[in-house]
Amino acid sequence: MKIFTVFLQVVFIHVFLFLAMGLRYIFSIPLPTTIIGLFLLFFALCFGVVKLEWVEKGANWLMAELLLFFIPSAVGIVNYEEIASWQGINAILVIGLGTFIVMGSTAWIVERFKGADPV
């Protein structure tokens, strides 16, 4: 039964994807469809148009299995032979160091200035 609930809720979440596509097209909003969809679902929940129970299980599944949906793009890396060159290796080093700097500095700033009531 649980799989069926998850499936139906994932299908239901598509309503927001299609709404977002429509709105983006009509008003030529300069944001990607998925981000517009995120805002739509968020406001639908806030205004009680959609109840949390209608989407929670489906959303939890999608979030938990997110890495699965990235796998094809990761396989697509083989199409870029440039990655297997010196440039590619340097690029990976740049990304590794850069990610370290961004993550470290963001976390440090928040931890340092988070105030007296940390979550």
């Binding site: 979440i13 994807l17 969809g37 939890n60 699965l68 094809p72």
Partner: peptide, 28 residues
């Protein structure tokens, strides 16, 4: 690889609803 990618559309497609799903923890 392109043949594989052509067959992977269902999985890649679900990335869209997955990003939308993050509205749920924000709302909670």
């Amino acid at each position: 690889a392109d043949d594989y990618l052509a067959g992977a559309t269902l999985l890649t497609h679900l990335l869209g609803p997955a990003v939308i799903a993050f509205a749920v923890p924000v709302y909670k």
